[in-house]
Write a protein that binds this DNA or RNA. Structure first.
Lengths: 290, 290
DNA sequence: TCGGCCATGAAACATTTGTTGCACGGATTT
DNA sequence: AAATCCGTGCAACAAATGTTTCATGGCCGA
């Protein structure tokens, strides 16, 4: 298989974890989660706290290729040494050229997107949230890459308003939903350049039906923003050769859901708790442990 | 006498330094200058490197009020312990209610998320992208709210590698896909606390199969990060009452797709152009106009 | 000059450290 | 069903740890 990036002893450990015997996995997890204590305290101490046999630590070290616990701990200690590099900069073994171009590419992109977020107008989001709060029913629309944003919004809103939120096209052809829009309902349409025809049709249908139209788009002149009651803007632009950025749209979606939830007050909170209890009962999630 | 501010054992040491016997001063200065080694290496080791007698360390500790070297080192160790408070913490502005409480809520949230993005480690993303580039096939997994991230990644990767990218569970029960993982393929699993059982099962299956496992998660100790060849971290934490933030995960997904695309070179570019041409021919998009 | 004092290094001490051999038990194979 | 392997806990081991003691030597005050 492709050789794993064994940048640090910790990642070596984590990679090897699943293929170890059960008890060794336990102590391995303990070490990975408490690596600072692993470097400072004694093996027996750790064993006592982890509720395991001291010998297990020696065996763990040998199992992942070290001559013993001492050597593993030495490696962890070196990896932890505050040493040379400033807070960021990865662990850079001296790489400066070639592959490093990708890294700066990523950093630049992340910083650019971070810069875009605070520029998102907050006021319209709050207003749109109130509209959602008042809506008897909420429809959500997004095509192609915007589908992911639509689904996230759908998911989060359904956590506390399960019966009143629906993804357009979720239960059959989109066109069936278009005729179902009613006044008093809200329709959210997400899109950016180039605009998908289908999303524009949804927006138009929403407007015609008298429902409240909320557009999440990259421009006021976006087709789905025409006639919209609320327009939530984000920056989708990216450097040439990149895909448009959806980070802003996601941030808007999450803010929208959060404010709508807070407007819902105790009732919304109650419903969310019910949902979570149901998920827990179905053992959807990995149970927490010490 | 006036009690000196004993904020840390180190400052205690430095304060008491001048009033100590010469040899103890030397040792004390050595400890102050190499406090990391002081917490990790043994007394005799330090003595050898400092060119001093081991006993001097015990005497130094006693001279500044500790019962022995062990106690001094324990204090230094505690002082050095990495703070367990999350990177977020400087906030908690008092504003709760008011006319535009919702608006400040949104701006705060946006700013917090913007601050989180530059903290995403870029190096692992670049490495993971190379793994994707080399993979014969790419599987993508995400449940519940992470489903949206998975689908975005799926969408963008398929733009230039249509036949080799597949969403786990897209064509039938997830379990059918679990058996299909092969060495030389890559499996991406996205998740954060609370972790969905299904995603952990996918990660385990991927690891067992010998495929390259890429985890996008909120912690190194996330279950799906165990055994992962690449772990891409983001901050999902949000203020109480909020949903976890997916902004970071989306940003990672997009960076991953972008770097993978750039690694694809001319071939990837060609495929992307084909795809776009096909979409245009199907008049998926609204034609540009004045 | 003598006598006490203290800093200092070396060696001996009890304790704790990491390690390894052994026996038991469950799972798998023959 | 028997044989075997492997994971695991226990206990004993040698090595290393921090501490203490003791002998030495320099310093200052009588």
């Amino acid at each position: 298989m492709a050789e794993p990036a064994k940048s640090s002893p910790l990642s070596e450990l984590r990679i090897a974890l699943p293929s170890l015997p059960m008890r060794l996995q336990e102590v391995g997890r303990f070490v990975a989660a408490n690596d600072y204590d692993a470097t400072t305290r004694s093996m027996r101490d750790l064993a006592a706290e982890a509720g395991a046999d001291p010998a297990a630590f020696t065996r763990l070290a040998k199992a992942i290729g070290y001559s013993g616990w001492d050597e593993l701990r030495a490696a962890l200690t070196e990896a932890r040494r505050p040493s040379q590099t400033s807070p960021f900069s990865g662990r850079a073994k001296g790489r400066r050229h070639g592959p490093n171009a990708d890294v700066t590419l990523v950093t630049d992109k992340l910083e650019a997107e971070a810069a875009g977020l605070p520029r998102i107008p907050a006021q319209p989001i709050a207003e749109a949230a109130r509209a959602l709060h008042d809506a008897k029913r909420i429809w959500i629309t997004g095509y192609r890459s915007c589908r992911s944003v639509a689904e996230l919004l759908n998911y989060e809103l359904r956590l506390f308003r399960p019966e009143q939120v629906q993804l357009v096209g979720a239960s059959g052809p989109d066109d069936l939903d278009l005729g179902a829009f009613r006044p008093g309902e809200a329709v959210i349409v997400i899109g950016f350049l180039p605009y998908t025809n289908a999303s524009v049709r949804v927006a138009q249908a929403a407007h015609r039906s008298g429902a409240t139209l909320i557009a999440i788009a990259d421009s006021h002149s976006a087709p789905m923003a025409e006639g919209a009651d609320h327009v939530l803007l984000f920056e989708a632009a990216s450097p040439p050769g990149f895909f448009p950025s959806l980070t802003g749209a996601i941030a808007i979606a999450q803010s929208l859901a959060a404010v709508t939830f807070s407007l819902g007050g105790a009732a919304a909170k109650k419903r969310l708790e019910n949902t979570e209890a149901r998920l827990a009962a179905a053992s959807t999630y990995v149970s927490e442990k010490g």
